[in-house]
Design a protein around this nucleic acid. Structure first.
Length: 504
RNA sequence: GCUCGUGUGGUGUAGUUCGGUCCAUCAUGUCGCCCUCUCGAGGCGACGACCCGGGUUCAAAUCCCGGCACGAGCACCA
């Protein structure tokens, strides 16, 4: 060891003074970027509102824009009218959800369906220049040829015929599946997915936003490539399942004589409790009545988790900590919940919620010396929220959880040490006399019936009890002492207060 | 099958570019303790990892070669 040390002193003295390593925080440097001249984009399909999975894109892109002095283009990739047709209400909802997640409006908002003339123009230019052609092969036939690195017969058609066919496609003269516009690539590319890839196809299904105006629609790889160029996108951050998109688009950029943006990737994320994030899948299950709507608490959508009470800061910190690795990962929901706990805890008031409440009679023995019946408990134990919950003077009836009564010697939080026997709690002292367990409880006067709804995979579990009826407001998030975080969902004039479970 | 990508504790993540106190960072988790009054909060502590096999080197998580495992793409979806 000493020999090594000596050697190091001679050859590499700095190595001896290395500091204990620290964890790098925040996103890594954006390659090839100039501060203030960075443009990123977030391009969801508006076939439904945003899911938790989408929020990664919002967070990463908006954060990169923030630290690089750049901007984010929110682009609706709505060029599929058939397989994943757009949902008209999703556009504005996504804009709003983007703002909620990132804390800032998108700098630019565009819809691909509004910009069709531009894409068609570029398609025509591509054909005219000879690096695009109209292919009338069936998908199966083309695949067969492509797999053998063989040209399809349409490839040799001259430009005028290609243009003529393109016109015919646009005017509706060719049925769906009857033709496609392809980008010429080298056919001996090792990756078969890249060979003469399709850029535009025919769709006769009307588009929910622009109707039947267009019969030819660009595919993602073409539309996205053109639009990124037009918007001056400098950096693309996308899932690594889209690596082939990068390669296809790079070929197209080459044809046009453009330089492709820097591209970064993230791996696939699965939430253990939910699996993947399929918008179309959720859309189907909602319409089947399996879920009450996009904001059903069992769904991994932004609207659902937001309604449940997750903070956008927690979502941001969560994704930022995962960073930009290309690993495919599975995350337990618990880790987002832990993040949320730490972000909301300091500004979340405490309340007592007694489950399975049993009535207990308070008895104050004559032998007790100083006794105070008044109870007031801090709204937050650390004082981050000033003020007390003033319960007033405790009369004789209180509620205690069934399980706590069995403990016998217990402390009623914020009030007194008691001994509970046969439904009677004999007060020992207001002050703590020993290290007995502390239980939450409620005087009858300030308690009100309440039901806590806990979403489960197979339905909603309902836990009933009594809630501390002190300054409760519909919509507020509280931490139920010894239970967990919950949202006050509904305070009806009659009947129990409804609460929805957030997490522990 | 072809193509591409990824392998650091239970789960994530830092460190890998340019080999060196790296007996490896941080968070979460699990377990334990504490709490000036929540045993699902908070505080403190413990546990726990470089995919495998070779090679280069005084020195390998880091470089080279070969395996293996996992994931994704191969749609006229995005």
């Amino acid at each position: 060891m000493d020999a090594v040390r000596k050697l190091l002193e001679e050859t590499n003295p700095e190595a001896l003074h290395r500091e204990k390593q620290q964890k790098r925080v925040g996103l890594p440097e954006l390659p090839n970027s100039i501060k203030g001249e960075v443009t990123l984009r977030f391009a969801p399909n508006p076939n439904g509102p945003l899911s938790l999975g989408h929020s990664r894109g919002v967070v990463i892109n908006s954060e990169l824009a923030k630290i690089n002095g750049g901007r984010v283009v929110l682009r609706f990739d709505d060029t599929d009218t058939k397989v994943k047709p757009p949902e008209p209400t999703a556009y504005s909802q996504i804009e709003e959800e983007y703002e909620w997640i990132s804390g800032k409006k998108a700098d630019v908002v565009i819809r691909a369906s509004d910009r069709m003339p531009i894409y068609l123009e570029y398609a025509e230019k591509m054909i005219y220049e000879g690096f695009g052609y109209t292919c009338r092969c069936t998908a199966q036939n083309f695949k067969k040829l492509r797999d053998n690195m063989e040209e399809c017969p349409c490839r040799e058609n001259d430009v005028s015929l290609n243009l003529e066919l393109f016109e015919s496609m646009k005017s509706g003269g060719i049925p769906e599946g009857g033709a496609v516009i392809r980008v010429k690539t080298s056919l001996d590319l090792p990756n078969p997915a890249l060979r003469d890839w399709p850029a535009l196809r025919i769709q006769h299904t009307p588009h929910p936003m622009v109707g039947e105006k267009y019969k030819v629609w660009p595919l993602l790889d073409f539309q996205s490539a053109i639009e990124d160029r037009l918007q001056g996108v400098t950096h693309i951050v996308r899932g690594k399942d889209l690596m082939d998109s990068t390669r296809k688009q790079t070929i197209l950029y080459g044809h046009f004589g453009w330089n492709y943006p820097e591209t970064l990737y993230w791996g696939r994320v699965k939430l253990l409790e939910f699996g993947g994030f399929s918008t179309s899948g959720m859309r189907m299950e909602i319409s089947e009545g399996k879920y009450s709507g996009w904001d059903d608490p069992r769904l991994p959508t932004i609207s659902a988790i937001r309604k449940r009470g997750f903070s956008s800061q927690a979502i941001r910190e969560f994704w930022l900590e995962l960073g930009l690795t290309q690993k495919d990962i599975s995350i337990p929901m618990q880790s987002i919940e832990a993040k949320n706990s730490s972000t909301i805890d300091s500004f979340t008031e405490r309340r007592s919620f007694v489950r399975s409440p049993d009535e207990v009679i308070i008895e104050i023995p004559d032998t007790i010396g100083d006794y105070v019946a008044e109870v007031s408990i801090p709204k937050h134990p650390d004082g981050t929220i000033p003020g007390m919950r003033e319960w007033g003077a405790v009369s004789e009836k209180i509620f205690v959880e069934k399980d706590d009564i069995g403990i016998v010697d217990i402390r009623l939080k914020g009030f007194a040490d008691v001994k509970i026997l046969d439904g009677v709690a004999v007060v020992i002292s207001n002050e703590r006399t020993d290290r007995r367990a502390i239980a939450h409880w409620l005087p009858v006067e300030i308690s009100r019936e309440a039901v806590l709804e806990i979403p489960q995979a197979d339905g909603i579990q309902k836990v009933s009890g009594v809630i501390e009826d002190y300054e409760l407001v519909e919509g507020m998030i509280v931490q139920l002492e010894r239970v967990g975080f919950a949202r006050i969902k509904k305070i009806p004039n009659n009947g129990p207060i409804m609460m929805s479970w957030l997490h522990g």
